[in-house]
Nucleic acid binder design. Structure first.
Lengths: 104, 104
DNA sequence: TGTTCATATCAATATTTTTTGATTTGAGGT
DNA sequence: ACCTCAAATCAAAAAATATTGATATGAACA
């Protein structure tokens, strides 16, 4: 099983407003970094910082073509994230064990 | 539509290792705060801080009974989080618009 | 009312994350 | 080899988040 630090990585990607704005741009199709940068209130190095976090999370994939890098949403990353979210937040029916004060 | 700050709230709850450890405890059933505290490397006020974040995210619900508060996973919160995750990371087929340099 | 116990809140500090500007790397083109 | 441009990396500063200890709140009960 992955460590909590490892699990947290995917969700960390999703808890910054600027990264959510980047994801929104990618929902409409593949975009290269310079295009993603335009509408954002970010410097080039700031965008690079956020793209690294998004790619490390698996939610976004980058594809190099010459000097440009094209980013797009990853279906595999999305599916993995949903599975992880469910794994972390769904009761485990085989290990039910309310604390004594919770059993009225 | 919710703001990015609002959306980020759910995922912020999931990107701290201590909060993931708390969720793990809740997967096995309802627990009161003092029981949740025991195995954690946290002070009472630290636990209270994290429980507030988890409850505000909607993933956890608290139920007061006398002086105790019993916490449990929220099915509604989980469903909402999954929907939000999909909404943020699924391509929007009606607005496809690759950047010109992405169309080879 | 006064006491106890569980939890919340507050203010200060510590830690982590993000931003910035400068520099570096690396792919093309001349 | 040199130049240009896109992107990554680095170190320092700024901003946000987490932790701590002290104090406050609020429920139960004598």
């Amino acid at each position: 099983m992955e460590t909590y630090q490892e699990s947290a990585k995917v969700f960390k990607a999703l808890c910054d407003p600027k990264r959510l704005a980047i994801l929104k741009q990618l929902r409409s199709g593949e975009k290269c970094a310079c295009v993603l940068l335009e509408p954002m209130d970010l410097t080039q190095s700031g965008l690079s910082y956020h793209m690294k976090i998004l790619c490390d999370s698996g939610l976004v994939e980058g594809r190099q073509e010459g000097k440009w890098i094209h980013y797009r949403l990853s279906e595999a990353g999305r599916n993995k994230a949903v599975k992880l979210l469910l794994a972390l937040t769904t009761p485990d029916i085989v290990s039910q064990n309310n604390c004594s004060s919770c059993d009225k």
